[in-house]
Simulated assay, not measured.
Amino acid sequence: MSEHIDILIENGNIIHAETKTIQKGTIAICNGHFVAYDPTVSYEIGERIQADGYYVSPGWIDSHTHIFKDATEPGFAADLGLIPMGITSTIDGGSSGIATWPIFKSHIVDANYLNIFYSINVSPAGQITERYPENVDPRYYDVDTLKNIMEKDAEHARGLKLRYGAEVVEPFGNDVLDKTIELADTIGCSITLHVTNPPCPMEEIVSKMRPGDVICHIYQGKRSTILDEKGEVKKAVWEARSRGVYFDSADARINHCYKVIRPAIAQGFVPDIISTDLTQNGIFSNMCWGLPVVLSKWLNLGLPLEEVIADCTYQPARIHHLPNGIGTLSQNAAANVTIFSVEDRNFHLKNRMGEEFDGEKMILPQVTIINGKIRYKNLYFPF
């Protein structure tokens, strides 16, 4: 009797995100995991996918979204919105705090096909609306409850989230970031730090961040940015990177600025992670749309395809310590796969800063496989 394979993806252009290389090949999946494939062996195959002419990569990770549907205004339906975008895993960026975490865990994390991870907001209520900022007063930080969440749900919890924008933190004094770092040190976790519209110079912020922390919206253009008055990436930013601090694009509608992006990447300061900061108001909008469009934008900005895909697969999985081999195509890893095409297609974007962007090549998801199950297939993809 022949051996069994649930899904065989044949003749695809396989992107190995760890090494940023592409080679023609075949991928086999059985019982939710990648398995070895020997073309000389006769197999019973459940489904063959002919991927000739398409790219095959580890399942895409959108490592900054807001998916606390029905409990927060920015939250949208995760499976419905993200799976057709080629996304197999996502990290919610602080939608829930300790007061709302139980509902977030039971109704979002445990109730979707997607692999869902999250950062806990330092605000007990989380980020429930875009109408006004969350309360990040350090007097209300609850070390014991936060530590209990991190230990109880170590598989999914990925550290703390602080929005360090002037509109959020100025009512609470100058030590919010310092107190958050103390909190993270006590708990033993990383911080994801929002830096759009910072209350102090960017170099002061990045100098405080620790190895393993993630600074998101790093190409923002409000108040102090990563560039100095000469348009050069600040020395403190380079030093933070060399120290082990990571940088996430988290573009969103207003958290990116081409006057910062273009000089920065010309100097070699490219993102460690590409993500969206997608919300109910941003999804499918011309300003952001979702991960395929954001990835396409970075491809058109000049990043090689292999690097773009690594920045939404292997890199976020490595940086955020995602389990089960997520972000790779390694044998025995959980079988998360995105099959996509790169096509000549003009597109136009306009962000909330009034900047416009035109692209010529579009990355189009075709098939989404989550933990060994096909959860989406484009109608135009070969049957």
Rank of each mutant, 00 (worst) to 15 (best):
R131D: 15
P133Y: 03
P133I: 05
P133A: 03
P133L: 02
E134C: 13
N135H: 09
P138C: 07
R139K: 14
Y141H: 15
D142V: 04
V143T: 15
D144F: 03
D144R: 07
T145W: 06
K147M: 11
N148R: 11
N148P: 00
N148D: 14
I149N: 04
I149K: 09
I149Y: 14
M150L: 10
E151Y: 04
E151G: 04
K152C: 06
D153N: 13
A154T: 11
A154Q: 12
E155H: 09
H156P: 04
H156W: 08
R158P: 10
R158A: 08
R158E: 10
G159K: 06
L160H: 07
L160W: 12
K161Q: 03
R163S: 02
R163L: 04
Y164I: 02
Y164S: 00
G165D: 02
A166S: 15
A166P: 00
E167D: 15
E167W: 06
V168K: 01
V168P: 05
V169R: 09
V169S: 13
V169H: 11
E170T: 15
D175G: 00
V176D: 07
V176F: 06
V176P: 13
V176L: 08
L177F: 02
D178A: 15
D178C: 03
D178N: 14
T180F: 02
T180S: 07
I181C: 01
I181W: 00
L183V: 10
A184H: 01
A184W: 01
A184C: 05
A184G: 13
D185Y: 02
T186L: 13
I187L: 13
I187R: 07
G188P: 00
G188Q: 03
G188L: 05
C189P: 00
S190A: 15
S190M: 12
S190F: 05
I191T: 06
I191G: 03
T192I: 14
L193Q: 03
L193G: 04
H194L: 06
H194W: 09
H194R: 05
V195M: 04
T196I: 14
T196Q: 12
N197K: 09
P198C: 12
P198D: 11
P199R: 00
P199D: 09
P199Y: 02
P199L: 04
C200D: 08
P201L: 08
P201H: 14
P201V: 08
P201M: 08
M202C: 11
M202V: 08
E203S: 14
E204Q: 14
E204T: 13
I205A: 01
I205W: 02
V206Q: 06
S207R: 09
K208F: 00
M209P: 13
M209T: 07
R210P: 12
R210V: 09
P211W: 06
P211S: 02
G212E: 09
G212F: 12
G212W: 11
V214N: 11
